[in-house]
Nucleic acid binder design. Structure first.
Length: 167
DNA sequence: ACTAATCTTATCAGGTACCACCTGATAAGCCCATTAGT
């Protein structure tokens, strides 16, 4: 049936293939999670090189873990977040790299991104990798760029009806 | 079935330019988001 066939093709260059963690990697991840459910960028990078997994995969892993393992509970999430982030005694580098540093796109990079977005606002993994290589930016940043762009396009579309009335 | 990947929405934060706006990065999702690979 053509349905399955086309679905498969779309799927195949749609999603990145699932990362399979080894038991040893999982052990380290879980151990870190239990101490710090909200690792900052420096911590995630350290983990990444320690277990030889790309940092974006680690970020996703923590997001999924927080969603499914309510590492709970007592204090509100805000407090857990606070205590795990700025409470990082020691680690100087963690302070300097609390978040990934902002990515700056130049005009030609933006032009390429915008053009691709107009072609397809939901690029699959293959397209994102190609774009990333073309403009010299990690694929994870391209993905974030598309997410933010879609999001702002949606919220703008919601506001427009009001503004039409204003004129 | 389990869980990595993805999506939308809301918010934080750093820069620019002048205090508000733009936009990249992060977090949550509630009868605990949805989708899909293994």
């Amino acid at each position: 049936m053509p349905e399955d066939y086309s679905t498969k093709i779309v799927t195949m260059n749609y999603r990145r293939s699932c990362t399979k963690f080894t038991g040893e990697q999982l052990k380290i991840l879980i151990d870190t999670f239990n101490r710090k459910p909200y690792p900052n960028y420096a911590t995630r990078q350290k983990l990444a090189s320690e277990i030889n997994i790309e940092e974006p995969r680690i970020q996703i892993w923590f997001q999924n873990r927080r969603a499914r393992h309510p590492f709970r509970k007592r204090s509100k999430p805000e407090e857990a977040l606070k205590s795990s982030q700025d409470h990082g005694q020691g680690d100087l580098e963690e302070r300097s790299q609390a978040r990934r540093s902002r990515t700056y796109y130049n005009c030609s990079q933006l032009h390429i991104l915008v053009e691709a977005f107009e072609n397809n606002p939901y690029p699959g993994i293959v397209s994102r990798e190609q774009l990333a290589e073309e403009i010299g930016v990690p694929e994870s940043r391209v993905q974030i760029w598309f997410q933010n762009r879609r999001s702002r396009l949606f919220s703008q579309a919601k506001k427009e009806p009001d503004e039409d009335l204003e004129q």
